[in-house]
Design a protein around this nucleic acid. Sequence first.
DNA 1: TATACACGCAACCGATCGGTTGCGCTATCT
DNA 2: AGATAGCGCAACCGATCGGTTGCGTGTATA
Lengths: 106, 106
Amino acid sequence: MRRDIFQAIADPTRRAIVMLLAVQAMTPNAMAEHFYTSRQAVSKHIRILVECDLLEQEQQGREIQYTLRASKMNEIEKWLDQFKALMAKRFNQLDDVLKRLKEKKK
Amino acid sequence: MRRDIFQAIADPTRRAIVMLLAVQAMTPNAMAEHFYTSRQAVSKHIRILVECDLLEQEQQGREIQYTLRASKMNEIEKWLDQFKALMAKRFNQLDDVLKRLKEKKK
DNA sequence: TATACACGCAACCGATCGGTTGCGCTATCT
DNA sequence: AGATAGCGCAACCGATCGGTTGCGTGTATA
């Protein structure tokens, strides 16, 4: 079982949950009301998000408030930055090529 | 079958392929040499990436060069930005709350 | 022209996914 | 105390995933 942020955000419902929790902490029932899915289905998504270390829970009586661990989202950005760095490098190499072509022209 | 960028980058091998292609276009065989996976497995990942509209192919004799459609990656960033916007809003609301508390103190 | 290579495609496999149903536990309400 | 509400958990389901094996086809090479 792979459990990382990329897996976490692969599902549209889970992305929606992340968005909901970005606004405010919520109980599973409150989340489920925002979708057409059942409470159970939402609960399973929550479980995965917890396993991905993206959610924290706080029991409050018979309810559970789930809070987003926003810092986890940085991992996506970190990966994107690595990607962009590679792309930039590529362009620099292209620059080098163009420069060399210019030199040859002279 | 869901086919979007989030699905595309959910798999670690596919993320690696994206990174490879970020540096330079490649044939399936060239990609496979970078992993411990078989050519066929890589080929299946390529297929998914193509279906996600993340790769372009150009036949060159009996080889196929796959090129990354880097612009597709923006969709991830776009989603991340939406997320950040929601978080920022949340903090602004928190600011409002703190402000109001201050007012009351007076 | 015969052979080797690069690749896609289809069939198959066990594992996981996303969902539903049903149960049980604990907390709140009457 | 009994009924109800909020939730997790386990079992089950069909669909998809990631991988392997085998085959077909078109292109280069000897």
